[in-house]
Each structure stands twice: as C-alpha cells, then as structure tokens.
Design a protein around this nucleic acid. Structure first.
Length: 954
RNA sequence: GCCGAGGUGAUGGAAUGGUAGACAUACAGGACUUAAAAUCCUGAGAGGGCCUAAAAAUCCUCAUGUGGGUUCGAGUCCCACCCUCGGUACCA
C-alpha cells in the first residue's frame, strides 16, 4: 500500500463496530445535557446526491463534536416520503407508489450509512407510513375541531390538456411541467389551514430568534404586514351626485394623502365591476367597452399579466365616487394593476404620492395633486428651538451650459462655508418662480439670456436656521432647469457676490456627489426623472390639516374622512387540498347534507385506498376507489361520502420533528415529557428553498398546537442555518443536461467517505448563503491530508509529549470547538492542517499527542480515526471519548511577536512577553532603525495595545 | 424597481478596528527515481531601490470593487457610486 490505505475496508470495519456498540442511539429520558440537532428529512428519490452529503455530513461532524463535549445529542433521520415523483412513476411505469417509495428508502439507507453519519436510526420516521400519517390526520382533526381548518371555494391551477389540477410546484413559468400547456385558473372547493390568524404572531415571534437577518426578512416579506386604513367611498350617478347608489371600501397605507385622491380604481374581479357590467349596466355609458376590457383581462394568462407592466384600464363612465375628505366627485376606473386578491380589491388613487397611480394618471391625463411636501432639516445648519419659523418661497436653479454640458455649482463662504449648492434664492413678492430664477442667475452667476427649460411639478421644503436674522426658515422650493448657450461674454461677478461664493462648472454625473443639502439632491433627482413623492413631509391642499406633519395627522385624517384603521397581510391562508394520490388522506367525511365531519380517532389511520386509477381525469385518484366509498358507508352509514383529496406534503413536514421524540407511540403523536425536555430544536439545518414555505408552515403548526395545549413551545427551532449550494465543476448548477453532476457514490468509492467529508467541510463556511463549485482536485488533496496523518501516527513513539505539541493541541481543541459552534467547519479543518504541519516538524512525536490529534480529527473523518486510535493504543471507539482538554495556561504564549508601527505603518516587529509594559515594548522597539529615528525626531506619542500593536505617532 | 447578502491573489477561502492573503488548490523550481507516479523541500500579490557576474537576505512604495470620510491605525466603521448573487414583485 505504501502510505496509502484501503478505505473500503476501514469504513466497513468502523461502521460494523458502531452498530455493534450501538453508539448513536440517544436515550431521550437521560438526565444528560440534551441537544437536538436536526436536518431537513430527505425525499426518498432513491438517489443520494451531493447536496444530501453536504447537508448530512457537515451536520454529523457537529453532532460528533458535541457528543465528545458531553452533550446528549439527538441526531435523527427520516423520510419525507409522500409526494409526486412516486405518483409519476406509477402513471408512467405502472409501479405501485408505495413499493417505489419503500424501495428507494431501502437504497437511501445504504447510501446514507456510507457517509458514516451518526444517525439514530431507532427514531426513524417515514411520512407515508400509516403509523406516521395516522397522527398527521389526528392533528388535522384537532385543527378542524378548533376552527383552524376550513373548506371554501378557491381558484386552483388547471391543465386543460391533462385534465388535472396541478400543484403550485408543478406550474413552471405559467405552464404545466409535464406537457407545457398554459395553465388556467378554476374555482374549486378546497381545504385551508388558517395561517392568517397567526400572521402577527409569526411576525413578532421572529424578533427574539437568533436567525440570520436575511432569513427573517424573507419571512417578514412573505407575511407582508401593512398598517393602514379602510376608507369608504360613496358611488353615485354622475348626473345626480347627491344620491349614493353603492359604496366601495378601499384599503390604503396612506390615508394621510386622501385629499390627493383624484380617482378610484377597481380590480377587474371586484364585485361592483361585475355588477355594473351586467345587471346594473344601465348606469354606465360604456358598458360594452368595460365588458370588452374584462374579457381581455380574463384572456391574459397570469404570466402575461405579470410580464406586461404597462398600465391599462377603462373609465366607468356615468358613475363617480365621492372623495370623503374633499367631497369632490372623482372618476372611477377598472384597471388590472389593482389586484382582486389583495386588500379590498379597490384603491383610492393618489398619483402625486404613489408610483403606480402616478404612471396611470400620466397615461390617462388624470389630475395629480400634491398634498405632502417632503421636508428635510438642513443637517449642516439645523433649525434652532429658540427661534420662530418663517415660511419663504425659494427657487433652486440647475444651470446647464449647452456648449460643454456642464452644470453650475456654488461653493459658499462665510457662515455657509463647506456647503455646495445649485444657484438659489428667494422669490420676491409678485415674482413667478421662473422670473426669480432668471434674476438669481444674473445675480449669482452674472449671466443673462438663460432659458428656463423645465420646472419640477412638485415642491419640496427644507428647514434651516437663518442665524443672522434670528429666525428658522422653512423654504418652500421650486426646482427649475435652466440652460445657457455659452459662457461667452459673461459679466464679472460683483465683489460682494464673489465674497459669498465661488462658481464652478462640473460634469452632470458629479452633481449628486457634490450637492450638500439633502433636499437639493432630491430636487436634482426630481428634475431628471418623473417620479411620485412617496416620502413623508407636511400637508398642503388638505383643508384644515394644512401645515401639519403627515404622520402626526394620520389618525385625525382617518377619522375626519370616516375611515377606520386596519392591518392587511399579504399572507394567504394555506391551501392544503391536493387532487393527488400519494399523499395523506384528509381525514374528513361528509354527511348526507354534505356537511364535513372529522373522522373519529378510533378510525385512524384513515388508510389510503389501493384500488385506484392513477390516470389523470381531473378528479383526485381517490374518487375512483370503490373500497373507499364502501368503507365510508360501512362506518358512517348510507348517504355519507368520503373526502377524496389528500394533504399537501408540507403538512407532513410541519411536525415530523415532534415524532422523532416518540416515533413508535401508537397512542399519541408524541410524548409530553420528552417534548418539554427536547424542544425547541437547538439547531435546524436546511436549504434556503425552504425559508418561506416549510419554515413558516412549521412555525404556524407549532403555534397552533401550542394553543391547543398539545406542544409546550411556541417556536419550534431555536437556531436555523441555511447552507450554501454545491455547484458543478464548471461553476454551474449541477444538472444531468449539463453533464456536470458529481455522483458522490463514485467519489466515495475512489477516495473514501472521510476524504469527501473533509472536503465538504473545507470548501467554505457552512453558515453562509452562496455557492461553491466542486473542485475536482479537492477530494484527492483531502485524501493526501489523511495519508499524512496516517504517516505521523505511524512514527509516533512512547516519548513524553513536548510542550510545543501540548500548546498546539490545546489551541486547536478550543478553536475547533468554537468553529463548530459557529458552523464554520472550514477553518476548523484549516486548524487541523496547520497543527499537522507543526507536528510534522517535531523531532519526536508522542503517541499521547497523536491520540489527541486523532480525537480532534474524528468528527471529520470518523472511519480512519477509529483505526488510528486503536493503533495508538486507544481503548474502544474513538467516538466514545471526551474532547481533549488542556490546562488554560497552555493557551497563553510565553513570548509573542508584536508588530511595531510608526505613524500606522508597519516598520518591524519585536519579541516580548505577552504582558510586557509599554516601557519594555518601546525599549525593545528602539532596535528597529525606523523606530529609533522616529523617537529621535522629538515629540511623539505611543499607542500600545498589549499583545496587539505598538504604534509610535510622530 | 424594492429587500437582503456580498465584492480580498490564478482558484476556494482566512483575518474580536491592530503584521492582509491563514489553510488548501493550481503553478514554478529542486531532491529522491533508470524513468514516471507518490513523497519531501523551496518559491510566489504587484512594482521598485540597494548590492551584484547573477541571485538571496534586507529596504521602500502600492495593493481587499471605485471615490470620499472617521481613527494613532480601516478588508473590517460611516457616506456616495459601480458590479455580482439570492429573495420578491403592479401587495395600494
């Protein structure tokens, strides 16, 4: 073999030994310190890919580390075994989904064992097993009994070619994943879990969780909480505005802008639109046009509607809405930029302060009325509380020189030193903003003949202190763009103006960076792009509210306009009905009146029938089961009918981690005492694709079960880590069509499981998002590392450990444990490699030190370390031993190398005791020529941070 | 568009505000070998000065996307901009 080893033999031997010693069966009742380490259970595709390895092998490293550190670790495994691939196999090849699934599970168990992972197989959970789904069903009936599951009509995705309902995940870019046909929407009666009832708690529960901010943010965005108000608009005939014929409620987050609501928009799906287009059509003059628009919208696929952002719509002529704040009649439009499914399906449009309304208003020539003036305090010259505020009208003029394309900028002197602005000044009595602009250009730049080419349609304001006048000013600002043909023949700026500022000309792209006052920057932007003002400020054109802060007046305006505060969520109730065979049957039966009843616990598990036709017919395959109908009649009586749908597989995975605690219990879904001891899960590792759906569903499930007093915690997972993605060697996502798929079985066969584990640990930090390309040289190089360890173990002698060995091991044992806690296993491996480099340089190497080294390596390379442990005289399994511990003084170096800087630049280093005084450090540093020179130069001070740096500042 | 994360050698990546590039990979040179593989040793961010026959050591300058700032000291903190990746999208 010559320096190499037979990994197949070593792995088989170690795995057999663990089985014999039963090393990883966790005693759930033990008093030892419990730690629940969870990885998302895999779907049994029958093909263990590199992503599975990354997920399980790295988590296993931490499990092993924690056991050595004295924790009683629960590291379970199971299978998320319901789902579509099994059913597709049945349709395509006529294989029984159950048989297909269990065969795959069998194959995956073997593959999973090949990783050397320390799973506790005695707790295995299989979601499609009746002993598991019995309890999925039981929990569903509990939710149903407490009103958290209900049946109602809802739109679903429908493939017209295959005559079947599709699950969301079967719809890819608006098309059926199997045949590529455009998907339609149909309305069917479906089961929902009322997750929206928990929206607020799902949101607030996030706050104390130590999860990464991006994960929490994704959940927050999914929940989509918006606080605002419901406002009521009367609808009347345009001819006789006095008599209201309908009312429309709108949801808005900006009731403070209601005085600027210049039209109303209804979604095409809004009930009032349907009514006005059909039975009440006499009220509108253009009913045909409206019906045409509704038809056109309906024909648009969801894809087209989201792709084409062009805002279309038609006015409902003949009816008007009354703005409850101004009492003005305003036009009503139907437009598909308003969604029927969000809020009330109707909005009050405030084009001045909403991007979408702004765009629509410009296109349709609707009134744009500014009601909020953005107002910023000038940070360099803020208003002072002791002064009165005075309003002034001012202009800001951006002057462009047409011959060079450059813009004028003023650098101010005197009290405004350091401030750079465009040309600006007050508007005198009787002047228009344009006239003031021309005057200011001639005064401040001594230029005549400027043309005003543009004026921003909105005004902004800035508050600042005019200390020379003893007042605060609130400057109402009009922004204008002016152009001048050339600077030829420009006049000289008079001395008194020149004293105040310096005029210079700069490139367009430099302006934003140069302008200092925030509101001038904003004006610059408004001058160049037409956008709505969505920020805060004070109110204008708002009756008695004029001058007030928009946020402060928020509630008063709601009250004034007769609205009420509400909160709206983006989160929808969870649709759990699937017209699919290979899922958990919904445990419901219908009485002869069609009323749903929960199937009593004594009839659970409510078994999935086997006499079914898998061919897609548009109905659930369960509907073809004779046995199921007979079963219902037999148990519940004639006229009773079964529920044919099955549950979304996300229901199965919302509670599996509870079942791991008591997987074989035939009388309960889990065990109360064990849940108290083991929940919440300490660390949950998974893929970022489950950030919103699975993680949110599981959190909801646990909160609901907590409220039913079934589970002792409110949050299921204390820590959550989303791992990165392993890419192909070409840096692309692995896929069969690209031919860049790495098959872990082959790599393991060639280089061994230990090398693959170390490689995956070393590839990068596990606790960060991102992706890592599979480096083809990576695994062989880890194999070489293992072989170097073997060579060192072979040369270890009975000599006593040297201090150098001990110090190295002491440092590494602490560092590796810390890295494990942070899930940064890449630096843990680097530490092991660096330590090996050190040990190789030692003249002699003791068996005792090498045993400790092997222990530190054992979580990463669990197989080979068993053999090395034995060869070094270790007893039993290396994995049954406590993590090496050393005296704390070994962690403190006798001497350290201290960097010496002069003026922050490194000029040398000195060797010192770690607790050397400043005087000692300086004395030693004199030996460095640059330091001696600096010290001789005279006045200086020193910054000394013991153990870190000595900096001499001249 | 919005939200989030991130830009460090040829590559993956290290670095509580304190010697940037740990640890690897790839690369180059050398040793061993009949030869190759394996193994071991050495080198290496870029540029320059000095000394030289040539080199090494030594020394200096510049370097963590770009431009500013805070600090004795910035990859790390602050501001603006550019780019990449992830999530999300007419959510009122």
């Amino acid at each position: 073999m010559g320096g190499t080893y037979n990994h197949r033999e070593v792995e088989a031997e170690a795995q057999a030994m663990w089985k014999e010693l039963n090393l990883y069966e966790t005693d759930l009742a033990s008093d030892a310190d419990p730690y629940y380490l969870l990885v998302e259970f895999p779907y049994p595709s029958g093909d263990l890919h590199i992503g599975h390895w990354y997920a399980f092998a790295l988590t296993d490293i931490y499990a092993r580390m924690l056991r050595a550190r004295g924790k009683n670790v629960l590291f379970p495994i199971g299978f998320d075994a319901f789902g579509l691939p099994a059913e597709n196999a049945a349709i395509k090849n006529g294989i029984d989904p159950k048989e297909w699934t269990y065969q795959n599970i069998e194959r995956m168990r073997v593959q999973l064992e090949s990783m050397g992972a320390s799973f506790d197989w005695s707790k295995e959970v299989i979601a499609c097993d009746p002993s598991y789904y019995q309890w999925t069903q039981w929990l569903f009936t509990k939710l149903f009994e407490h009103g958290l599951a209900e049946r109602r009509a809802a739109p679903v995705k429908w493939c017209p070619k295959d005559q079947t309902v599709l699950a969301n995940e079967q719809v890819i870019d608006g098309r059926c994943e199997r045949c590529g046909t455009e998907v339609e929407e149909r309305t069917l009666t479906q089961w929902f879990l009322k997750i929206t009832k928990y929206a607020d708690r799902l949101l607030s529960g996030l706050e104390r969780l130590p999860w990464r901010e991006d994960i929490k943010d994704a959940q927050r965005a999914w929940i989509g909480k918006s606080e605002g108000a419901r406002m009521r608009f009367d609808i009347s005939d345009a001819a006789s505005a006095s008599e209201a014929v309908h009312v429309v409620d709108v949801f808005t987050t900006r009731p403070d802008t209601i005085f600027g609501a210049t039209y109303l928009v209804l979604a095409p799906e809004h009930s009032l639109v349907t009514q006005l287009a059909t039975e009440d059509a006499r009220r509108i003059e253009n009913a045909n046009e409206v019906r045409g628009y509704l038809e056109a919208t309906k024909r648009k696929t969801e894809r087209e509607r989201s792709e084409n952002k062009e805002k279309t719509g038609v006015e409902l002529k003949g009816v008007r809405a009354i703005n409850p704040a101004t009492n003005e009649p305003i036009p009503i439009y139907v437009a598909d930029y308003v969604l029927g499914s969000y809020g009330t399906g109707a909005v009050m449009a405030v084009p001045a302060h909403d991007e979408r309304d702004f765009e629509f208003a410009k296109k349709h020539g609707l009134a744009i009325r500014q009601v909020v003036v953005p107002c910023a305090d000038d940070v360099s010259n803020p208003p002072r509380p002791e002064f009165e505020e005075v309003k002034r009208d001012t202009v800001v003029v951006h002057l462009r020189d047409r011959s060079t394309g450059k813009f004028a900028i003023l650098d101010w002197h005197g009290p405004l030193e350091g401030i750079a602005t465009a040309i600006m000044g007050g508007i005198d009595a009787g002047e228009t903003p344009e006239e003031a602009a021309v005057r200011e250009i001639s005064e401040e730049a001594a230029l005549v003949g400027a043309h005003i080419t543009k004026r921003v349609p909105f005004i902004t304001a800035a508050r600042y202190c005019a200390s020379h006048k003893g007042e605060n000013r609130c400057a109402h600002t009009y922004a204008l763009l002016a152009e001048i043909d050339s600077l030829e023949g420009k006049g000289k700026i008079p001395d008194d103006e020149a004293k105040k500022h310096t005029l210079s000309w700069i490139e367009e792209h430099e302006m934003l960076g140069r302008l200092t006052p925030a509101h001038q920057k904003q004006m610059w932007q408004l001058l160049h792009e037409e956008i709505a003002l969505t920020g805060d400020g004070y109110l204008i054109n708002s009756g008695t509210f004029d001058g007030r802060d928009n946020r402060e007046a928020f509630s008063d305006i709601i009250e004034y306009a007769g609205g009420e505060r509400t909160t709206n969520y983006r989160l929808r109730d969870w649709l759990v009905s699937r017209q699919r065979y290979w899922g958990c049957p919904i445990p419901i039966v219908y009485d002869p009146e069609g009323k749903p009843h929960a199937i009593p616990a004594e009839h659970l598990p409510w078994l999935l029938p086997t006499d079914v036709d898998f061919k897609p017919t548009g109905k659930s395959p369960l509907a073809s089961s004779e046995e199921l109908r007979e079963r219902v009649t037999r148990i519940f009586g004639a006229g009773w009918t079964p529920e044919y749908d099955t549950l979304d597989t996300f229901v199965d995975s919302s509670w599996y981690f509870l079942r791991y605690l008591d997987p074989k219990d035939a009388n309960d879904f889990s065990d109360g005492r064990r849940m108290k001891r083991w929940l919440p899960v300490d660390r949950y590792s998974g893929g970022s694709e489950h950030t919103t759906m699975h993680l949110l569903y599981a959190r909801f499930f646990i909160k609901a079960l907590h409220d039913l007093a079934l589970v002792p915690v409110e949050e299921p997972f204390e820590e959550r880590f989303n791992r990165g993605l392993i890419m192909g060697p070409d840096g692309q996502k692995m896929s069969k069509s690209k031919g860049n798929v790495i098959n872990p079985d082959e790599v393991v066969e060639e280089y061994g499981a230990d090398a693959v584990r170390i490689y995956l640990a070393f590839i990068g930090p596990y606790n960060e998002p991102g992706s890592y390309p599979w480096h083809l040289d990576g695994v062989p190089s880890m194999r070489r590392f293992i072989e170097r360890v073997i060579r060192q173990a072979a040369r270890a002698s009975d000599a006593a450990p040297t201090e150098g060995e001990e110090r190295g091991l002491a440092r590494a044992s602490v560092k590796i444990a810390e890295d494990g806690d942070r899930f940064k296993l890449n630096t843990a491996v680097a530490t092991l490699m660096a330590l090996l480099n050190e040990l190789e340089r030692e003249q002699t190497l003791s068996k005792q030190s090498m045993r400790a080294y092997v222990q530190l390596l054992a979580p990463f390379a669990p197989h080979i370390t068993e053999r090395l442990w034995a060869s070094l005289g270790g007893e039993g399994s290396v994995h049954a031993n406590a993590w090496p511990r050393y005296a704390p003084e070994l962690l403190v170096d006798r001497v350290i190398t201290l960097a010496v800087q002069v003026n922050g630049k490194r000029r040398g280093e000195v060797t010192l005791a770690p607790d050397a005084t400043e005087e000692e450090a300086c004395a030693a540093a004199r030996a460095i020529p640059a330091v001696a020179e600096a010290l001789a130069a005279g006045t200086h001070r020193t910054v000394y941070v013991p153990g870190r740096i000595l900096n001499i500042v001249v």
